[in-house]
Design a protein around this nucleic acid. Sequence first.
RNA 1: GGGGCCAUCGUCUAAUGGUUAGGACGGCAGGUUUUCAUCCUGUAAAUGGGGGUUCGAUUCCCCCUGGCCCUACCA
Length: 479
Amino acid sequence: MIKTRFAPSPTGYLHVGGLRTALYAYLFARKNNGKFILRIEDTDQARLVQGATENLIKTLQYFDLNFDEGPYIQSERSAIYQEHVRILIEKGTAYRCFCTRERLEEMRDKQVQNKQATMYDRKCLYLSESEIKAHLDQKTPFVIRQKIPYEVIRFKDLIRDNVQFHGKTIDDQVLMKSDNLPTYHLANVVDDHLMGITHVIRGEEWLPSTPKHIALYQAFGWTPPQFAHLPLLLNADKSKLSKRQGDVSVENYIEKGYLKEAILNFVAFLGWHPGAGEEEEIFTLDELKQIFDLKNVHKAGAVFNLEKLDWYSWRWQKRKYEEDPRERSEKLKELCEKYTSDKYKKETQKYQKALLTVEEKILKDPKQTDSYIEFYFHLPAYDKQLLTHEKMGVDLSQARESLTKSAQVLAEIADWNEENLKKTLTALVTAMGIKNGQLFWPLRAALTGLIQSPGVFEVPYVLGKEESLKRISLALAKL
RNA sequence: GGGGCCAUCGUCUAAUGGUUAGGACGGCAGGUUUUCAUCCUGUAAAUGGGGGUUCGAUUCCCCCUGGCCCUACCA
């Protein structure tokens, strides 16, 4: 039975790279009718963040990446690791190291100076029984190190095929810290084995650690699981995706209004492709479950490119809202609530009408909501040149004429609605014998004071008759 | 310094020992639209370099170059 796990550290938020790792591990398990479990790797007390675990679980569930077991919490499994490291010491594949941090630092400095590899010199490996006993009696703090075998360590990675390292190039890893908590390497191997993980799917940054893990499995006499090291997610400059160069927190993207389907679809395609000439790029989680295969995961890292995310987002919005228009209005409501300032909300009727005219833009970029509707409430200052448009054949005198006539016919509209506005204004175009743009451009510009805005029929409707006529006369005053 | 991984348009990627090296995003141009957006059409844009193997290499092998990852009592 296939079993995969997602094993994040609770450092505060879910990293987009972590989301993709979780997704692949989840998809692989589901595709093969296996299990997917969650394990929280919180053995570093210094990096613990309050509430991070809860947040991680919540976010995973938000994406419907449901786990079948767990969450297992490593900090609660301390006794298990201690028992296992004891076995290693007995077998002689791990040893206590009493070296002080100062000594280690000094040693490393020297090695760097001499352009040597920085590795522990195994001083404590050669301590005699009595020396060890003396240290123990004196309660000298110690760590437990893994004795890396002096031999070639090979393994087959599901994505990278054969990989090998020589033990002599690998440092004797700390397995148990002086606070009696295990390091990643120990806890990870012990847990993966005990939890029956068959496939370790994780980021490529772990590739150089894998021989240490293999050696550990061997030391315990266990069969190692299969490994699949995923390509890294990269910044625009190709370095490992980092906080410094942009948003890496999944929660931030949710906050920004991206649909979960879009986010998932997007990260799924960062480093993976259905292959076989498939050209469709929009897939649901269920569809991904059917077609996902580790064989189609790439080796090279993938730049995390937000422009494509925007496209996915738009495509998913259209798809979802076509399926369910109610969802669209709920989403819109939620976004407006979050992104428009209260001063606009006070003018409830106008505000709501205004929103209708910019719905699509809000969905595409919710944070701009305020600026989309601002002009309805305050006419921006503008130059009279805005009322002209060379390409459309609108000069200042044309603008004056169009606006004057517009004001006349608009003043006579009794029932002020979009339909009537459209009827009246198109009739005016015909009557004047001019092109649409020659009337509509200056009118829209006068009403909005903007170079781009919602349409010329909806704007005056939202503004109301009085305000519309007022803005037209303000424009005429400039001419 | 040591070890390892990787290399197709700007980006995400497809494909194959023989193709006009395909798609998508973005760009540009045009069209629709009163403007922006949407939508539609078109277009530019890639196999890092050098050696092999082969009738033929982007594909297989080697070297180089470049990029990245690891090199903590972090994960």
